[in-house]
């Protein structure tokens, strides 16, 4: 894609994302994600991380190997990234990466500690604009995968087609000038 004063490289990513595919990506790459993605945010990610650390994900019927987790609610109002540096979300990312999550999708700067933790576990952080009206056309199907009692904050499984994003942190490098954005 060529725009303005430069060229953006766009990479198609099909889920589950292999370790090899993740290794090829660098901060600043533009990607389009297709396939199954999970959606979760403040209410469920700490619960999911706790279950993952206890090794009980299989009982929940959730397979995180190569997974994408989009930090969003899912509702009739659409989908769109919530702030990833909220304590409940950013604090869950390392445990979920250890359990196989290859790409965390949200918005906002992460702390240097989190960027390093993602790198240690072969995981990436990508950001996407909150284009809910446009994203609606990219959702092929949607179902609640776990924690239905959390309503729009439940853990959802979506099939998506060409969800756009930009890699914000990969291999310990971040696009943010300063990785000091953790919520105070």
């Amino acid at each position: 894609m060529k725009q303005g004063g430069g060229t953006i490289k766009t990479v198609s990513l099909k889920t589950p994302i292999s370790p090899q595919a993740a290794e090829k990506l660098t901060a600043g790459d533009q990607v389009e994600i297709s396939g199954r993605i999970y959606c979760g945010r403040d209410a469920v990610l700490p619960r999911l991380a706790d279950i993952a650390e206890r090794g009980s994900l299989r009982e929940l019927g959730v397979d995180l190997e190569g997974a994408v987790i989009f930090h969003t609610a899912v509702s009739p109002a659409g989908i769109g990234p919530t702030t990833s540096n909220k304590v409940e979300i950013e604090g869950s990312m390392e445990a979920l990466s250890k359990s196989g999550v290859r790409l965390h999708l949200g918005k906002g700067a992460l702390s240097p500690d989190t960027v390093a933790a993602l790198a240690r576990n072969g995981s990436l952080f990508a950001i996407t604009p909150p284009l809910s009206a446009l994203f609606s056309a990219k959702i092929l199907s949607s179902r609640v995968a776990a924690f239905p009692e959390e309503g729009m904050e439940a853990f959802f499984e979506l099939q998506v087609d060409k969800m756009p994003a930009i890699i914000a942190a990969a291999q310990g490098r971040s696009i943010f000038q300063s990785d000091s954005g953790k919520q105070s």
Partner: peptide, 15 residues
């Protein structure tokens, strides 16, 4: 002039 920034701005307006 930043292409990533333009991509976001164009996306917000199109949205």
């Amino acid at each position: 002039t930043n292409p990533h920034a333009r991509w976001v701005l164009e996306g917000v307006l199109e949205n």
